[in-house]
Nucleic acid binder design. Structure first.
Length: 779
DNA sequence: TTAGGGTTAG
């Protein structure tokens, strides 16, 4: 019998004959072989593989049994290719492999995901008529599944004359590992129906992660009931089954059941603990997650694993508790697991999210092994801390180090373009995802929609949206929010109706996007309508964020008293952000009395962040009460709140130019200031009057006028006028809200310089053209 | 059996 020709390195041994086992009288040589075999197996049993190999090499002519013993030993531990090498030399020595050889060499191929070699072995087994043997077939299924070849795996399974639970489980594990939910369920039913076999612990442990992934709680509960009936929770696999059940409940966000399983388990391991801690993190129960982590440590360090530490570090990042995170870093170092890649990446993420750039970089440089996730953690940390330019540098470094960006990397990077409002960077990133074949991904498209909207190209956002293969709730919300910041409330409403027509159920975020879109467009009645519909028709209870939107809608629309009444009637106690929305509108509408009342409320609550201090101070300044304004700023300083300096920037030919108020650091500053002085003369002729109520300092009128003239957004616009051709639209981005005087002045600028100007501020877009602004002065 | 970086609003 000739073996078929194979294509790999095994090809050189193609002409191997399979002989029947030697028979005849037991000779002295046979007895010797028995002794060799005994010695060989003893060393293997003790795990002394190097000595076992020396023994093997001394055997005068090793037989299949000797080969099988060593191949089997090699197939269980690295280096796995030793098993394949030995199999190759077995063929070379013309010792015929048998049904005990093939499963183990196939296991080595499977572990190494070496499909070509595995196929060759499949050929050998078929030539020997052993490919339908139960153990050989099961090993073949494992191999094909591991290499994601479901067709060949199913063929092998179909050709088996007899199948045991292990064979059924091998196929099921394959479906489960590749997320093939329907196949897995059908296979399980078939196993019990046609196969007349009862699922065992391995079946359950394979299936549960798949149910968890699909949040199939009711099927998971049925499986739990089966486990109890089959007493699978009482045998030695109890830890595996119990942990898999617990994890399924946790992933289905059913923490009560997860805890119940956890506390009923007589024995737990490190996986059990980390699964439950991870469940609490998933459900955003950060304090409880950390408390459980501490309980685990109290039981002993033996339960500490990179996985549980990763969850604990997510808690630290989420609670912005760097001190706790640093203590965990020390604990990791002490336990010797700080070199673990998962643990290292979690630490990186914790430091990056906390904005501790030096610590992040130091750790990153220390890491001996870095992967895509390490770079992703660093990159997203920069983006989340508003350091978009640094994020681009990480991306460049990543490419220089040949680390391939994936979906998550690009989803992190694209918002960096939005933050900079750098359209050219955004377009490059769009090109980059197309080249990498990632443009089909829903999450990538969502990030692109957001990026184009924030870079002023709502038309390109819509193009991406229209071409998407599959949309999720985030896609719809992002597009509605995009229309909102462009003041296109009608379009936002139309899209919302289209969303419902296509069968998408809006969520709480949808209504935040929709109501704020109405607010930016002055659609007060519509906004109120959708707020009522949210609870009455969609059964979504309003959160604090919805109340903020409503107060913003009413107050910005000029209905200050109604907004005040609305706050009074809220079922929740209004927080600083709600009052802040009203205070902002008091400033716009110059209602000093109500402003004072609101500011007293804010003082009682204690201002959070910096916005309200600034607003309050501005209100006092606008009323000419400069001493009180200064006092607010002193309180702000004493309490340690920093005010972000107003900053505006403009992209010219792919380079960003940033300005702060009164900035003279730009190389073209003299020209910019000259241009602004000229503009002031021209716009005054058209009737512009500086609104000095926006000047915070107690200065003379003329000085106030100059202070306004050199606001950051005006400097950036003047630089744009000098740098761009007359037909080009000037696009400026500001980190804070555009000031009221600038808003008026820019309208005049479009007339005297005959330019279209777009300003994106912290709140929305302002499209200035022919002396008007798209916001209709609802700014 | 667990797990690290990710998109919307405020």
């Amino acid at each position: 019998m000739r073996l078929p020709r194979v294509h790999l390195r095994l090809a050189s041994t193609a002409a191997v004959r399979l002989h029947p086992p030697p028979s005849g009288a037991i000779s002295h040589e046979v007895r010797d072989k028995k002794e060799w075999q005994l010695e060989l197996e003893q060393h293997i049993a003790r795990g002394q593989l190097a000595i076992a190999r020396q023994v093997f090499d001394r055997i005068p002519s090793p037989d299949a049994r000797a080969y099988n013993a060593l191949i089997r030993a090699y197939s269980w531990r690295a280096p796995f290719h030793a098993a394949i090498d030995l199999y190759r030399s077995m063929l070379h020595s013309r010792v015929p492999p048998n049904k005990y050889t093939f499963p183990f060499v196939l296991k080595a191929c499977s572990t190494l995901a070496d499909l070509r070699c595995g196929r060759a072995v499949h050929g050998h087994a078929a030539a020997a008529g052993l490919h339908t043997d139960m153990f050989v077939s099961t090993a073949l299924i494992d191999l094909y599944i591991r290499c994601a070849r479901f067709g060949p795996a199913a063929n092998v399974f179909a050709q088996m004359p007899m199948r045991d639970v292990v064979a059924w489980n091998a196929m099921l594990a394959g479906y489960a590992q590749h997320g093939m939910y329907q196949h897995a369920i059908a296979h399980l039913l078939d196993m019990q129906g046609h196969g007349c076999l009862r699922p065992n612990a391995s079946t359950i442990v394979s299936l549960l992660p798949l149910l968890a992934q699909h949040e199939a709680l009711s099927q998971g509960t049925s499986i739990h009931a089966y486990c109890l009936r089959a007493c699978l929770d009482q045998k030695e696999e109890q830890v595996l089954v119990g942990t898999a059940l617990l994890d399924m409940y946790a992933k289905c966000k059913h923490l009560v059941y997860a805890c119940r399983v956890f506390y009923a388990m007589p024995v737990r391991n490190e996986v059990t603990w980390s699964a439950l801690i991870g469940g609490f993190v998933l459900c955003d129960k950060m304090v409880q997650a950390f408390s459980l982590f501490k309980d685990m440590l109290a039981q002993g360090l033996c339960f500490l694993s990179p996985t549980s530490v990763a969850s604990a570090l997510r808690v630290c990042a989420s609670l912005s508790d760097v001190r706790m995170g640093t203590q965990l870093h020390a604990l990791l170092a002490k336990s010797g697991i700080h070199t673990d890649l998962t643990a290292g990446n979690s630490l990186l993420s914790m430091y990056a999210k906390a904005g501790l750039i030096n610590e992040t970089m130091a750790l990153f440089d220390e890491m001996a092994v870095k992967d895509t996730v390490s770079y992703g953690a660093l990159l997203s940390g920069y983006v989340q801390n508003g350091k978009a330019e640094e994020a681009f540098l990480v991306f460049k470094k990543m490419q220089a180090c040949n680390v391939e960006p994936d979906v998550a990397t690009m989803v992190s990077l694209i918002p960096a373009c939005s933050h900079l409002a750098a359209l050219q960077h955004g377009r490059c990133s769009h090109g980059s995802v197309i080249i990498r074949g990632l443009a089909i991904e829903t999450s990538i498209c969502n990030a692109l929609i957001d990026m184009y909207a924030k870079c002023g190209r709502i038309d390109l956002s819509r193009q991406v949206f229209d071409k998407m293969a599959a949309r999720d709730i985030v896609s719809w919300n992002t597009m509605i929010a995009g229309y909102g910041i462009h003041g296109l409330g009608k379009e936002a409403t139309t899209l919302f109706l289209g969303m419902k027509n296509q069968g998408f159920a809006p969520d709480d975020v949808t209504f935040i996007c929709l109501i704020s879109a109405c607010s930016h467009s002055g659609l007060v009645t519509e906004g109120k309508h959708w707020f009522n519909m949210m609870t009455q028709k969609h059964g979504i209870p309003p959160r604090m964020e919805h109340y903020i939107c409503m107060v913003d809608l009413l107050a910005r629309g000029g209905f200050l008293d109604e907004a005040y009444q609305f706050i009074q009637s809220m079922p929740l106690k209004a927080d600083v952000r709600v009052w802040g929305a009203l205070l902002g509108a008091c400033r716009i509408h110059k209602n000093i009395d109500l402003g004072k009342q609101v500011s007293r409320m804010i003082q009682k609550l204690g201002p959070e962040g910096t916005g309200n201090f600034v607003l309050l101070s501005n209100i006092f300044s606008a009323a000419g009460r400069f001493n009180e304004a200064a006092e607010v700023r002193v309180i702000q300083k004493v309490k340690g709140f920093k005010k972000s300096p107003g900053c505006s920037w403009i992209e010219i030919n792919g380079s960003l130019h940033a300005f702060v108020g009164g900035d003279q650091s730009h190389p073209r500053s003299p020209d910019i200031y000259q241009e602004l002085d000229n503009i002031l003369i021209d716009i005054k002729k058209l009737g512009y009057q500086a609104d000095t109520s926006f000047v915070l300092q107690d200065l003379e009128e003329e000085e106030k006028e100059k202070a306004l003239l050199y606001h950051s957004e005006k400097l950036a616009i003047a630089f744009g006028i000098l740098s761009l051709g007359e037909d080009k639209t000037i696009f400026v981005t500001k980190n804070l809200r555009v000031c009221g005087d600038c808003h008026t002045a820019i309208k005049y600028m479009t007339l005297v310089r005959k330019r279209a100007i777009i300003v994106r501020d912290a709140n929305r877009f302002h499209h200035f053209k022919n002396g008007k602004c798209s916001c209709g002065d609802f700014w």
